[in-house]
Simulated scan of single mutants.
Amino acid sequence: MALFVLLDTETTGAGENDRIIQLGYMVLDGKKVDVYNDMCSSDVPIAYGAMEVHGITPDMIEGRPPCSETDAFKKLCEINTPDNVLIIHNAPFDLGMLSKENFTSKMRLIDTLRCAKHLFEDEEAHRLQYFRYRLGLYKIEQKEADALGIEVKAHDAIGDVLVLKLFLSELRKRLEERFGAVNPIDKLVELTQTPVFNTRPLKFGKYKGKTLTEIAQNDKGYLSWMLGNMESLDEDMRYSIGRVLESV
């Protein structure tokens, strides 16, 4: 039977040199749930902006082993096989951080952020904490946390994994409504591999408030410039810009 690994990390920041300082995940094995949650040290200082988000301060990780030497990391490596499924909200970020620890996932991947963009396309945001409130998950999370011995804290790795577990159930419900009797894991993996075309107005730049299609009709060069110069663009935005440029 496949294991389902719901994972999140907290880090020193979001830059190229930043590293993991908390690795938290749950392993779902049938009805059994095992929780792994380790704080870890880093030679990279924690950015103040990161502290503001997750509340992890230098004294909290002082004397801790680096990520690759934690029990959580070693167990993750042990169960890293193609039979298992790795579930992350915004997977590219966490997988990128794990790659700095020389971890490359062999598991099937479900990125609940991309799946949410497919299945909850009309929502104003797709952040995990947004859905925590939008879907009322905060009303039921304490019962789940008590059963698993987890402390609920927003932007804490294992606290976010708890919300992810509850959100996954909502994704499966929406999946059934949309596609009927399909294998939910196979379909979520498929959606993870399918880029999302962005039809919403931009929230940044000189064409803020305009859709990509509207921009392409008046200034294709700007979209080409975005592709070549804005490294922060995610895969979905790059896919959307490329598709729009091909169509005009």
Rank of each mutant, 00 (worst) to 15 (best):
I88E: 07
E78W: 05
N90Y: 15
C67N: 00
P66T: 11
T70L: 09
N80M: 13
P92W: 07
D71W: 11
I79Y: 08
P58Q: 12
D59G: 02
E101H: 05
G63I: 10
I87P: 11
I79H: 05
C77S: 00
D59A: 11
L86P: 11
P66M: 00
I61M: 01
K74P: 07
P92H: 09
S68H: 09
M97Y: 05
A72C: 04
E62V: 12
P66D: 00
L95W: 03
D59Y: 08
F93R: 08
C67H: 01
P92L: 08
P58Y: 05
L86G: 04
F93T: 07
D83T: 03
H89M: 15
D71F: 11
D83L: 04
F73D: 04
I56E: 11
L95I: 08
A91P: 11
D94E: 14
L98A: 06
D59L: 09
K100R: 13
I56Y: 06
I88V: 10
P58E: 04
K74W: 12
I61P: 04
I87M: 10
F73R: 06
R64S: 08
L76S: 07
D71C: 10
L76R: 08
F93W: 12
F93L: 06
I87A: 02
K100S: 06
A72Y: 06
K75R: 15
K74M: 08
M97Q: 09
C67A: 15
K74R: 15
A72R: 10
S68T: 12
I79S: 00
P66N: 06
G63S: 08
D71V: 13
D83V: 01
L76D: 09
L86T: 10
M60K: 11
K75N: 02
P66Y: 03
L95S: 02
S68N: 13
A72G: 04
K75F: 01
T57H: 10
E69V: 07
N84I: 02
E62C: 07
L86W: 07
S99Y: 15
P58W: 12
K74E: 02
H89F: 15
D83Y: 04
K100D: 07
I56A: 13
V85L: 08
R64M: 15
S68E: 13
I87F: 09
L95G: 01
I61G: 00
D71P: 04
H89C: 13
V85C: 05
P58H: 12
M60V: 03
S99A: 15
P58M: 08
C77Y: 00
S68I: 09
P66K: 06
K74F: 03
F93M: 05
N84T: 03
N90P: 06
T81V: 14
A72T: 10
D83R: 14
E69Q: 15
L95M: 05
D94G: 03
